[in-house]
């Protein structure tokens, strides 16, 4: 089988997703080599989280193939999917911590449930991973007792608990202060460079994106409008891309209606 030989950690071909009549992802194709960091960028609501949810097997595409660590996950049953899932980890946009457990128990959960880690080792790993995200001493608090940014970092610690081969992060740094953002970015880089894992990071923080990316994808209304190395993206002439990178309000990205359009809509005359 190609499982172990494949040099691609991720290979997506012709992914299409419709919610009802609305096409949210349209013909998405890309590959990612092992040991690289892919950054997925795009405006709010363009389908970044939806794309990520396909990569982790939560959503099934209407069309297309998704190869994760050498296996096409669109064709797997629950058991097969669980097998692949044991090799990767996900940091959710809002943490997705179990509210009934403490911070420490949340980080320990994947360890203890994997069935081959004793409680004392899990305890140690929890301390180590929480230290990595700057949350030493918060083990005993409940998720409802910590801030949104802290919850995210706990989510990161939990994702790293089992040393995954492939790490998915949905907006790991939005809502964090600049120092913490740099810490998380450095952590991602360290994981990739020192442990050789592969990472997929969704973000709309451009500083952070260019700091960590080996490869970038720009999504716009469910389509990839540009992909390549950070340099290629920086020099891409597409005005939508340039507007996004520079963070300008005026440009081809239709955020607001023009004055005339606005009056027309308001009075609903064509």
């Amino acid at each position: 089988m190609s499982e172990t030989k494949s040099t691609h950690a991720l290979e997506v071909r012709g992914l299409v997703k419709k919610f009802g009549p609305r096409t949210v992802l349209n013909d998405i194709s890309f590959t990612l080599k092992r040991g690289e960091i892919l950054v997925i960028m795009g405006g709010s609501g363009c389908g970044k989280s939806t794309l990520l949810r396909h990569l982790i097997g939560v959503l099934k595409p209407n069309e297309g193939e998704i190869h994760v660590l050498g296996t096409d996950i669109t064709k797997l049953d629950d058991d097969g999917l669980a097998k692949v899932r044991r090799r990767f980890a996900m940091m959710h946009q809002f943490g997705a911590l179990l509210n009934s457990l403490t911070v420490g128990q949340n980080v320990a959960l994947p360890l203890l449930e994997s069935g081959n880690v004793s409680e004392s080792i899990a305890d140690l790993v929890v301390k180590l991973k929480l230290e990595l995200v700057g949350l030493t001493g918060f083990e005993h608090l409940k998720p409802s007792e910590i801030s949104g940014g802290m919850r995210k970092r706990v989510g990161m610690a939990r994702a790293l608990a089992l040393d995954p081969e492939l790490l998915f992060c949905d907006e790991p740094t939005s809502g964090l202060d600049p120092v913490m953002t740099a810490v998380i970015d450095q952590l991602t880089l360290d994981m990739v460079h020192k442990l050789g894992i592969t990472a997929v990071v969704v973000t709309h923080d451009m500083t952070s994106a260019f700091r960590i990316a080996n490869k970038m994808i720009m999504l716009f209304e469910g389509q990839i409008i540009a992909q390549g190395t950070p340099d290629e993206i920086r020099n891409n002439p597409d005005p939508r891309l340039q507007q996004f990178i520079k963070g300008e309000a005026d440009g081809p990205i239709p955020l607001k209606l023009s004055r005339d359009d606005y009056i027309k809509r308001l009075l609903s005359v064509d």
Partner: peptide, 18 residues
């Protein structure tokens, strides 16, 4: 239901916890 809404159940599945 609350766990479902706050994506906790999805997170369990993604961690390969049934």
């Amino acid at each position: 239901g609350t766990m479902k809404v706050s994506e906790e159940i999805e997170a369990l599945e993604v961690m390969a916890i049934d």
